[in-house]
Amino acid sequence: MIEYLVIVAALFIAMLVYFKIADKYNIIDKPNHRSAHTQITLRGGGIIFPVAFIIFAVFNFNLIIEEYWSFGLGLLAICTISFIDDIKTLSNKIRLAVHLISVVLLLYFTGAFVLMPFWVWPVLFILIIGTLNAYNFMDGINGMTGIYSLVTLSSLAYINKEIVQFTDHDFIYYPILACLVFLFFNFRKKAKCFAGDVGSMGIGFWVIGLITLLIMKTGEYNYILLLSIYGVEVVLTIIERILLKENIFEAHRRHLYQLFANEKKVSHLLISSTYAFVQLIINIFLIQSELPIWGILPIIFIPTGCLYLGLKLSLKKKYSL
């Protein structure tokens, strides 16, 4: 317990130091046409997630050398390029190259290259990079990234302790502590900071790494549904944009959470909490269920998909979007 209190204190200090640096060098997020916020706010507060891993490495040096070095390199690489991109926009080629390298390191860490046939590897690349980008797309309002990640990480911690131990407990507890500290500054009506790409990509990489490791250890693919709400939101939004013949790679405001925040003016904290709560209910069902993934998929996706489409259609009709 004392160790975790020390870590929390260290993370708080790291955030406060970063605030001074960000303020000095003008690392800020200015509202634009797709923003759900209206005030200039410090960007890059998600740097706390790679900092949490560095602290984990200091306390677990032997474990890093033996097992976690490839994950650490991948995480730090993707966080570094994302932080640079937060400050100065980089070309898509550079970002994609680093993302690919990071995913290679993540798959090596999870043992996927040994456990999966080579023809599955491209599928894993697409799924992981797609999920990373989904994490980034959904990071648009106060509290969303932090509280959603907290729910998923807490579910993974429960699985690791009560069902099957697939990793070191601290490897899940450290990002949980980082989420709590980040939420202290971000889960507010007027956030002190935003996660930035470094935050959404960093915690996304950590969560995806844990889920991939769990799947590789157990062979149970249903654990991918620990991120099902993000999956439903992003996939259906992409389909909508394709049907409207829009460029899916351009910035937009068509996500359901954006419509609620921007058009209906619903509290960011309420929206973020609702998303996290629905994912928590799904996680509880997922953990307790003994059904195979093909039995679980329709139970989860049919009601959530219908709810999403119903809410989207009602908002579009009301606001003529």
Rank of each mutant, 00 (worst) to 15 (best):
W69F: 14
A14P: 07
A22N: 06
K20C: 02
D86F: 08
F83S: 11
A36W: 04
D29L: 06
F49D: 04
S70C: 02
S35Q: 05
F12D: 04
K30N: 09
N62S: 14
F19T: 00
I54M: 13
A57M: 08
H33P: 00
L96Q: 03
F61S: 09
A52F: 10
T41F: 03
D86I: 05
G44H: 01
I27A: 10
K30H: 10
M15F: 02
K20N: 12
M15Y: 01
T89M: 02
L90C: 06
Q39R: 15
A97D: 01
D86M: 06
P50E: 03
V51F: 13
N26D: 15
H99P: 05
I47E: 02
A14C: 12
N60D: 05
A14H: 05
I54S: 06
A52P: 08
T38A: 13
F56N: 02
F83V: 12
I87M: 13
F19I: 05
I64V: 15
G46Y: 01
N26P: 01
S82Q: 10
A77F: 15
F61Q: 08
G72A: 11
N62E: 14
I21R: 09
I84D: 00
T41P: 03
L73T: 10
S91L: 03
K24V: 06
R34F: 07
G74M: 11
G44Y: 01
D85L: 08
A14S: 15
Y25F: 15
F49R: 05
F61H: 06
F56S: 01
F19E: 03
N62R: 13
F19Q: 04
H33T: 06
I94L: 14
F19D: 03
G74A: 11
Y68K: 10
F61P: 00
L16S: 04
I21F: 15
K24N: 07
L90Q: 08
S91T: 09
A97S: 14
S70Y: 07
A14Q: 05
Y25I: 14
T38Y: 08
G72D: 08
R43A: 06
A97I: 11
F53T: 00
K24Q: 12
S35W: 07
F83Y: 15
H33F: 11
G74N: 10
M15T: 12
G72V: 10
I81E: 07
D85Y: 07
S35A: 09
